[in-house]
């Protein structure tokens, strides 16, 4: 029972971060058709911004949500309206655009990573925040992890409600289902595409802020999160918000359960899940 509870709680903590990381990528690919290889770099950029604000200026890490979020949102929006839109205009069809967009994303990945390295160096960075245990039943859980779980869930729920309840959210969902039809119905499709890419960046920034509270990072560790986001997106289903959240939590629980026996096997099991899914159910659990 103790082991079950420990796995469940820690798995949900891990899963909440995975879900948040994947939500951003899912939005960018599901609607804007950009498989953003540089997604993890913006997560790490936000983690460094948070650390600088906390360790350097003594501000609460949550303040970084209001700093890193808008910064990455603005960068992403501008990137879409300049680089990606131009690439899209020059592409013959959506398939060609998706291929070209990956190449652009690779370029951004290297640029952002090297700029961060120049600014923050190559050493592992991190800071202590709420570094004390909380007893839940028989399990000791790090307080910072519970804090991250809480905020990750709040962000996921707010984003889900935004998509379901707001006019912009409906326009995004319409664009995701059929961009051509949505445009005919009056949706400003280019703006929505740019907005989705920027929202993806915003979610990456939020993930980076939360991740920095619970684990250290380096300027080259962004790709780890991009990889996890890919796995979750494949697991949950392309372009499916509920799928990304469900996939994140499933992967988190499986990942922690495997880690209890051997942490080194975690990624091997993740890759196995992806392989099996791509063969058996390529749409993912809740894919369209």
């Amino acid at each position: 029972m103790t082991l079950f509870l420990t796995v469940l709680i820690n798995g949900c903590i891990l899963g909440s971060v995975y879900a948040l990381v994947a939500l951003g990528l899912n939005t960018q690919y599901g609607v804007a058709h950009i498989l953003n290889i540089a997604h993890g770099e913006f997560i790490i950029l936000s983690a460094f911004i948070t650390m600088t604000l906390y360790a350097g200026a003594g501000l609460h890490p949550l303040v970084a949500l209001a700093v890193a979020g808008p910064i990455v949102f603005a960068i992403s929006f501008v990137l879409h309206r300049t680089l990606y839109k131009r690439v899209k205009d020059m592409s013959a069809n959506i398939g060609e655009f998706e291929g070209n967009a990956i190449l652009v994303a690779f370029g951004i990945y290297f640029i952002v990573q090297n700029l961060m390295r120049d600014k923050w160096g190559s050493a592992t960075s991190g800071y202590q925040f709420m570094a004390f245990p909380v007893r839940i039943g028989p399990a000791d859980i790090a307080a910072n992890n519970l804090f991250v779980l809480l905020w990750a869930v709040v962000i996921c729920v707010v984003y889900y409600l935004f998509l379901m309840r707001t006019r912009t959210g409906k326009a995004i969902r319409a664009a995701a289902q059929d961009a051509g039809a949505a445009a005919l119905l009056g949706v400003k499709i280019n703006t929505i595409m740019a907005l989705c890419f920027a929202i993806g960046g915003l979610l990456a920034a939020f993930a980076g802020v939360l991740i920095s509270m619970k684990e250290p990072f380096t300027t080259v560790s962004g790709m780890n999160y991009t990889t996890i986001a890919f796995i979750v997106v494949v697991l949950g289903g392309l372009g499916n918000v509920k799928g990304a959240i469900l996939g994140g939590f499933i992967l988190g629980i499986v990942g922690y359960a495997v880690s209890t026996y051997d942490t080194g096997m975690m990624f091997a099991v993740f890759y196995l899940i992806v392989l099996v899914l791509l063969i058996v159910r390529p749409k993912g659990l809740l894919g369209r």
Binding site: D262, G264, M266
Partner: peptide, 20 residues
């Protein structure tokens, strides 16, 4: 004993809980 992956993104809490 537990192996730890070279790539990041693993859950260090799992290692410490097992050790504890």
């Amino acid at each position: 004993e537990q192996s730890v992956p070279l790539v990041g993104g693993f859950d260090a809490n799992a290692v410490i809980n097992a050790a504890k």
